[in-house]
């Protein structure tokens, strides 16, 4: 088996394994491959392609979430942040093995590697797909957001191969199956380095609090929160509810929250918590796209005509601070009684 016409998922490694988006794509890839089998009569293999300095442990996870085969691409120069070199080896492998479809997670890493690979192999790439499906001709239909998600458009890559797409974390669900783990295929490509790009230093950032995309409850704050002091109330409320706090761009611009990585929306995170509580959020399309799949949505805004209300199950027309304080008081009273 050489992966020809296969469906590849490019797996980004993380400090303790693989980025979750890769598992999400493998699960979706398994469905797409099944559908391709129905349409064309031959189901392509789903390949997890991992690049890095050495072979990665824990590959059984990749098989469990949808991979039929794992291709481990190892070279000492393939350090995490050398996206240029990862792209170079992936482009070579794609030319050599001719996959039909290649999927990337649209992380910082993936969104740099994917267009580089596409330009090298001279094929199409659809960015940040909100959905992927197979049409009656067996083509990959890539559904991409435009204008901050206000409009969705379908993209096809009818002639060139592979068909390539990137997908943000959280768009698809990682669904474990019971497929047995196999033996990864290890390849060691040739790779040269020069002085064009060199990593000088890496500063890890301590991420405090619960990761947004894993939280059951997300409290999101927008410009209507009004002040840094009020923002602290959201943090306190989040502590009481076991929630993660996310923000919109205006709140980030005001400097009420430190985290670019807590922004929800088109150019940030996609969340689908059990409960989303929005405070002082206007409901700009950019934000709504990142929270629309939440379970229960309750929004608080002083403006009775705020856009966000259209996308909410329940609306509260009131000041964010007053409601946050009342919720904190209720929760504290409940804990002591």
């Amino acid at each position: 088996m050489d992966g020809k016409n296969g469906l590849w998922v490019i797996v980004e490694r993380s400090a303790n394994g693989f980025r979750k988006v890769a598992l999400e794509l493998l699960s979706r890839g398994r469905d797409l491959a099944g559908r391709l089998g129905e349409v064309s009569g031959s189901r392509p293999g789903v390949w997890a392609v991992v690049t890095g300095p050495g072979s990665a442990p824990g590959t059984e996870e990749l098989y469990r979430y949808g991979a039929d085969e794992v291709l481990m691409v190892c070279h000492p120069l393939l350090e995490e942040h050398r996206t240029d070199l990862h792209a170079a080896v992936l482009a070579d492998l794609i030319r050599e093995r001719s996959p039909g479809i290649v999927l990337f997670g649209a992380t910082a890493w993936g969104s740099e590697v994917a267009p580089t690979v596409a330009a090298r192999v001279k094929t199409g790439l659809a960015a940040h797909c909100a959905d992927l499906r197979i049409d009656g001709r067996g083509l990959l239909v890539q559904c991409v957001p435009a204008f901050g998600g206000k409009v969705l458009g379908e993209i096809l890559c009818p002639d060139r191969r592979p068909q390539m797409a990137s997908v943000r974390p959280g768009v698809f669900q990682a669904v474990p199956g019971d497929a047995p783990a196999g033996e990864p295929l290890v390849v060691r490509p040739e790779l040269d380095d020069d002085d064009r790009i060199k990593v000088l230093e890496v500063q890890r950032r301590e991420i405090t609090g619960k990761p947004l995309e894993e939280a059951e409850v997300v409290i999101a704050g927008g410009w209507g929160v009004g002040s840094r002091e009020n923002w602290q109330l959201l943090e306190e409320l989040a502590g009481l509810l076991g929630a993660a706090v996310g923000c919109t761009r205006p709140a980030l611009d005001e400097g009420w929250t430190e985290g670019e990585h807590t922004m929800i929306g088109t150019s940030g995170k996609t969340v689908r918590p059990k409960v989303y509580l929005g405070f002082g959020i206007s409901g700009a399309t950019h934000h709504v796209v990142g929270m629309k799949d939440s379970g229960l949505v309750i929004s608080v805004n002083t403006n009775p005509n705020a856009e966000i209300f259209q996308f909410s199950d329940f609306k509260v027309v009131a000041d964010a601070r007053a409601v946050a304080e009342a919720l904190i008081a209720e929760l504290k009273a409940g804990k002591t009684s």
């Binding site: 790439l125 659809a126 379908e154 993209i155 890559c157 259209q310 996308f311 909410s312 509260v316």
Partner: peptide, 19 residues
Amino acid sequence: PTKAGDIYQPDLSRRCELL
């Protein structure tokens, strides 16, 4: 290499009940 197909507008509206 990529060709644009149909475009559409997703309907994301919910019940919007007042508390």
